[in-house]
């Protein structure tokens, strides 16, 4: 499977599921508020650069940033949501534009972006993720790696509708 076909299919699926989810939400307006919104983490927005482009991968890849995006309250997966990702990697500092990229969630609210290996910076191996597209409250995350030798990192968003 090539990366580009994977990407296009994911976009198509995401668009369809966004419509389906919207309808589902309307049918269940009184669903109990059970899933709490994710708060921003301390330092999450450090070295943020607005409007990171949606790209196939950041740099040469080799490391996977993955996660989910759901709606606060009913916990429904949110498709087609833009998640921005940046980190200090083997290819650049956090502040460098080439260390930044964005991707969209698929039909199941899952995102996955390949990027260069994250290396420890400022004392911890960590990544940065942002949701700030405006439909939901802005959230900045700063997940830590258990070990610098990890080749993937997860971060999960539960977004509060504006």
């Amino acid at each position: 499977m090539t990366t580009s076909s994977f990407h296009r299919r994911r976009l198509l699926a995401a668009t369809g599921s966004a419509l389906a989810l919207g309808a589902a939400g309307l049918l269940r307006p009184a669903f109990a508020q059970t899933v709490a919104a994710t708060p921003s983490m301390r330092g999450g927005s450090n070295n943020y650069r607005p409007e990171a482009p949606i790209i196939e991968r950041i740099g040469g890849g080799g490391f996977w940033m993955t996660g989910t995006v759901r709606r606060a309250g009913d916990g429904a997966p949110l498709a087609n949501q833009r998640i921005q990702i940046w980190a200090h990697t083997t290819e650049g500092h956090e502040r460098d534009a080439r260390s930044h990229g964005a991707t969209l969630t698929d039909a199941d609210g899952i995102f996955r972006l390949e990027m260069p290996q994250i290396v420890p910076a400022f004392g911890q191996a960590h990544g940065h993720l942002a949701y700030d597209s405006g439909d939901y409250e802005t959230v900045f995350l700063r997940p830590l790696m258990d070990s610098p030798s990890q080749t993937s990192l997860e971060a999960h968003f539960v977004l509060q509708p504006v």
Binding site: R42, G43, N47, F122, G123, R142
Partner: peptide, 13 residues
């Protein structure tokens, strides 16, 4: 921003 957070005692580290 990381150093400013540290000096303001607002750093996540």
């Amino acid at each position: 921003p990381d150093m400013i957070d540290a000096l303001l005692l607002a750093s996540p580290t």
